[in-house]
Every structure is written in structure tokens, then in C-alpha cells.
Simulated assay, not measured.
Amino acid sequence: MFNWNWKRFGMVAGLSLTLVAAGCGSSDEEGSETNGDSDGGESASEVNYGEEMGYEITGIEAGAGVVGAAESAVEEYENLNGWEVSTSSSGAMATALGEAIENEEPIVVTGWTPHWKFAKYDLKYLEDPKEVFGGEEQIKTMVREGLEEEKPNAYKILDQFSWEAADMESIMLEISNGTDVAEAAQNWIEENQDKVGSWTEGTEKVDGTEVELVYVNWDSEIASTNVIAEVMKEQGFDVTITPLDNGPMWESVAAGEVTGMVAAWLPGTHGDLYEQHKDNLVDLGANLEGAKIGLVVPEYMEVDSIEDLEAAE
């Protein structure tokens, strides 16, 4: 990483010398000689970001759809020959991204929208000409079979739950800045009573009816699940929220072991799991439109497409 910063310094230094020469009335030929100096540094296009990063894409949990898509991208794109996708957690990915940006170092991460990192940092998705990551996604609500008949008020609230990416990202950013998760959810609820009212419209308050919601431990799903849980608590429900890995999350809803989830990313991220379990659960439709997954880099990196990355030597 250290070497990369010196290359950038060399670029700036070389450009400064050229501008000084131009200001003194140097000819184009003289300017070309200055730019051709071996001490003038490398252009951004000559910087091998892959080498600086150890040809590694920083991923999240193994089994996550975006990680699977990134692994497919490594296979599909010839220029990613020799690259690997490292897996850890969404929190570890965010930490690595923040550290890289603080030091203005190159990094490629598995990213998704909505996420607070887009509100905090200047980031961009790399273009995906082969469409390995697919197009826009929806985040959908899934509940167990029989819920509408057994707990109609819970069913209706979950069915009416719908919001926008900006809503989710504002909560995620507040949590990332240190606010307690439940407190951040309550703050949003207090500031968005009209939207919350549309979720509970036509329902009656209950007295301790038990509800269990499951979610994958991503920042986006932490935000959405805590918000809907707090809303249901205000309606008198006894709500439990349980973080699970992707597979067990879907399995628990399909098996009728829990009430439901508001964390189903489709058609891409959880597509295989949906096909496996769709006949044993109830799809209540999208609670958020315009979600997206892909490879994400800081704006200062001089790459715009996955194809701009270089293969390992």
C-alpha cells in the first residue's frame, strides 16, 4: 500500500513539472521530453491495483448471494484470473473498507444497496458487462403458512410494511455512528409516523401475541428487522428477533418454526433458496425496491468496470 501512495506522489510531481514548463513558454516538444522522464511516475492506468491488494476481493459471510456472485465473476472474467474472494462478515468488510479509504488505498469489496457505506463514503459500483451480478433486486417479506388465519394482525402489518432505501440507510448510518440499534429504530419511527401508520392501518392492538422474526446479520437487515419489530411491539406483540445464516433463515420460515422475515433478497441474492422453499412459505411481496449487489470501490480508484482490473501474474 505504501508503494502505491508514492506512485501517486510521483504522478502529481510529474504533472507539476509539466505545468511549470508550460508556464515558462516551453515548446510542446520540450514538454514531451519532461513527461517522458523516467522519474516522472506512472499514469493511473499503469497502476496495478490487483497487485497492491494481493488480488483479493473483500467479501462478507460465506454463502451470501453477493459472495457467490463475486466467486462467479472471478470465473467468468478472464482478467480476474488468479483473484480470490475472501469471506468474513459484513462488519469486517466495512472495517476494511473504512481503513482503506482513510489511507486512500485500493480495495474492492462485495457491496449492496441499501447500505450506510454509500451515505458515508464516496463509492461506486464497477460496471458488470457480463451481468454476473444481475440487475436491480427487491427485498421481500416472507411469512410462514397459516399466519394470516392464526395471527391476522401480525400478517397484515408485515404485508403492509414498505419503505425506501433512504429510510433504511439513515438508520444504518446512525447505528454505524454508535447509536444503539433499538434506539436508532425508535428514532426513525418517531420521525416517520405517517409511514408507520400506513403499516398498522386496519389492524387492532393485541395483548402479548408472540411473533418471531429472523434475519441475516447484514446491516440492512438489522435495520429493517429492528424497525418492524419495534412497530409491532408498540401494537402489543411480544416480538423476538433472531439472527441466522442465509440457509437456516429460509428453512425456519418454510418449516413454520418462526413467523417470518423481511430480509429476502430476490431474484438474485437468495434466488436458489427461494426456489428451494417457495412452496412452503407465503410471499408477501417487496418491502423495498431498487436494491442492488456488485463489486464496489472508492471513487478515487481509476477503474470503472470489472474488466479494468488486471489478472494476477
Rank of each mutant, 00 (worst) to 15 (best):
W83N: 01
D39E: 14
E164C: 03
D283E: 06
D219Y: 12
G50M: 04
E164K: 13
L295A: 09
D207Q: 11
V206W: 05
L17M: 14
A255M: 08
E46L: 14
G68T: 10
E71Q: 09
K233N: 08
Y77G: 01
A94Y: 09
T200R: 04
V262C: 05
E257G: 00
D194N: 12
A312V: 02
V214L: 03
L97D: 07
M301W: 05
E131I: 08
S224Q: 13
S26Q: 09
V12L: 14
K117W: 07
D37R: 12
G54C: 04
G98T: 02
L19Y: 06
G10T: 04
E201V: 04
G25S: 11
T203E: 00
G260L: 06
G31T: 10
K140W: 00
N280K: 10
I107W: 00
V47C: 07
E104L: 09
T225M: 09
V20N: 05
G14Q: 07
S220Q: 10
G290C: 05
L309N: 02
V108Y: 02
F237D: 01
E51A: 15
M261S: 15
S43C: 05
V132Q: 09
S38K: 12
E30I: 11
V239S: 06
L273D: 07
A70Y: 08
E102L: 11
E149K: 14
L281Q: 03
V196L: 08
D245C: 01
A44C: 08
G256K: 01
S43H: 11
V66P: 00
L19D: 02
M53P: 07
A255T: 10
K151S: 13
T87N: 11
E33C: 08
T240M: 04
A255Q: 14
E251I: 03
E104R: 11
N35E: 14
D207L: 04
T113V: 10
D39K: 13
E42F: 06
V231N: 06
T95G: 12
A165E: 10
G65R: 05
W83M: 12
A94H: 09
G268V: 06
Y125T: 03
E42L: 15
M301V: 06
W163V: 00
K292H: 05
E61S: 09
A44E: 13
E78D: 15
E310A: 12
G178V: 04
D238K: 14
S16A: 15
N81W: 00
E71M: 07
I241K: 05
E289M: 03
T203H: 08
L173C: 08
Y125L: 09
Y121F: 15
G197D: 08
D159H: 15
I306R: 00
A94Q: 13
S88M: 10
P152C: 09
G59A: 02
G135K: 07
E78N: 12
S16K: 12
R144F: 05
K7R: 12
G50S: 04
S198Q: 08
F237M: 06
M249P: 03
G50K: 02
F9V: 15
V303H: 02
G197L: 08
M172K: 07
W6H: 12
I175V: 11
N5I: 14
E51K: 15
E183F: 02
G54M: 00
M93D: 01
G65C: 10
E251A: 11
E137H: 01
Q160F: 04
S38Y: 08
Y215L: 11
L15N: 11
